[in-house]
Amino acid sequence: MSRQRMSFAERRHQRFVLRALRKANGSRCHWCSKPVRKARANLPSPMPHDIATLDHLEPRSRGGLTDGSNCVVACYACNTERGSMPVEQWQAKLAARSSAEARAA
C-alpha cells in the first residue's frame, strides 16, 4: 500500500495536535516515558531518537484519524519501531522488553 501525501492543511493540523499533546504530556514519550524534544529544521540524518513525533494509536494505514483521541506523543525510536503494529501487540513487546531488562539487571 502506498502512502498518500498529506496536504498542507493536514500537516499543519498534525503539528497543532503534536504541540497540544506534548504540552499536556509534559514532553515525555507515551511508551517509554523518556523526555522528548521538539524537532528543529535541518535535523541530522539519521534522526535523533529523542525527537517528539506524533504516534497514531490506530495507524493511519488502518483508517486512524489525526485527532487528540487517536494520537500520543512518542519518541522517534518508539514510533519507528512500532510502525503500524496494533497497540496491544506493541504493549506486549514493551512488557517483554522491560522484564528482560529487569532480569539482566
Rank of each mutant, 00 (worst) to 15 (best):
M1H: 07
M1E: 07
M1Q: 06
S2P: 13
S2W: 14
R3A: 13
R3V: 15
Q4G: 09
R5N: 13
M6A: 10
M6G: 01
F8T: 13
F8G: 13
F8R: 15
F8L: 11
E10V: 03
R11W: 04
R11E: 05
R11D: 01
R11T: 04
R12H: 08
R12Y: 03
H13M: 03
H13D: 01
Q14W: 03
Q14G: 11
R15H: 06
R15F: 01
R15G: 08
F16I: 00
F16L: 04
V17W: 01
L18E: 03
R19M: 05
A20R: 13
A20M: 07
A20S: 13
R22L: 05
A24H: 00
N25G: 15
N25Q: 14
N25R: 10
G26T: 11
G26M: 13
G26Q: 12
S27F: 14
S27H: 15
R28C: 11
R28A: 12
C29L: 06
W31K: 12
C32F: 13
K34C: 10
K34P: 00
V36D: 08
V36E: 06
R37C: 10
R37P: 04
K38P: 05
K38H: 06
A39N: 05
R40I: 02
A41C: 05
A41P: 04
N42Q: 12
L43E: 08
P44Y: 02
S45G: 08
S45C: 12
M47K: 11
M47N: 05
M47W: 14
M47T: 10
P48K: 02
P48D: 05
H49P: 06
H49R: 12
I51R: 08
A52Y: 07
D55H: 00
D55I: 01
L57K: 12
L57G: 03
L57N: 03
E58S: 07
P59F: 06
R60F: 07
R60V: 15
R62P: 00
R62G: 03
G63H: 09
G63S: 07
G63C: 06
L65K: 15
L65N: 14
T66Y: 09
D67F: 09
G68F: 13
G68H: 14
C71W: 06
C71Y: 06
C71R: 06
V72P: 04
V73N: 03
A74C: 06
C75V: 02
C75F: 03
C75E: 02
C75L: 05
A77W: 09
N79T: 05
T80K: 11
E81D: 11
E81Y: 09
R82H: 09
G83V: 06
S84L: 00
M85S: 13
M85H: 04
M85Y: 02
M85V: 04
P86K: 08
P86W: 08
E88L: 10
E88T: 08
W90H: 10
W90M: 04
W90F: 14
W90T: 05
Q91T: 05
Q91P: 00
Q91E: 14
A92E: 15
K93D: 13
L94M: 09
A95E: 14
A95Q: 13
A96C: 04
R97M: 03
R97E: 10
R97D: 02
S98C: 00
S98Q: 12
S99N: 00
S99D: 02
S99H: 00
A100L: 08
E101T: 00
A105C: 03
A105Y: 04
